[in-house]
């Protein structure tokens, strides 16, 4: 009938959804994969991993990836570089320090998270400047 429609946009919605997903992760609710990183088991949701990482996108989107519920990353990132990335995926906040940045950069490169790689390079560059 051509009546003017209205849309109510809840501007906090995406961060509220992410916060709830992080709470589900911390409580192990609906987590569907265990990542063995440096021997340390980390539970996560494949959907979040695939949404955030080109590496996981290529693994879990394939039919073979559907049945995977434990994934070890041999020769992959060390836990101290991977854990901050997993937290970033679920919080949008990437914790970096001069001591951890190289390990996070290596893990982000491995996980094909290009935008985070660039941010790590900017951080390391800034850390080197007097």
């Amino acid at each position: 009938d051509g009546a003017l429609g209205y849309v109510r946009e809840f501007t906090r919605h995406s961060s509220d959804v992410l916060g709830n997903l992080n709470e589900l992760r911390l409580r192990g609710i609906l987590t569907d994969v265990t990542l063995l990183v440096g021997g340390q088991p980390l539970r996560a949701h494949k959907a979040v991993l695939i949404a955030c990482s080109g590496f996981f996108y290529s693994i879990f989107r394939s039919r073979a990836g559907v049945g995977v519920d434990v994934l070890s990353l041999p020769g992959g990132p060390e836990a101290r570089g991977f854990a901050p990335l997993l937290d970033f995926m679920y919080t949008s906040r990437l914790r970096l320090s001069p001591a951890t940045a190289p390990a996070v950069l290596a893990a982000a490169t491995y996980l094909q998270m290009e935008h985070v790689v660039q941010a790590c390079h900017r951080f390391i560059q800034a850390s080197c400047e007097p």
Partner: peptide, 22 residues
């Protein structure tokens, strides 16, 4: 200082874009 955290806002894209179904 131990524990001091400076937050830098990154306005750009944060993660890859999943290609839209052709």
């Amino acid at each position: 200082q131990e524990g001091l955290v400076a937050t830098v806002k990154e306005a750009g894209r944060s993660i890859h874009e999943i290609p839209r179904e052709e």
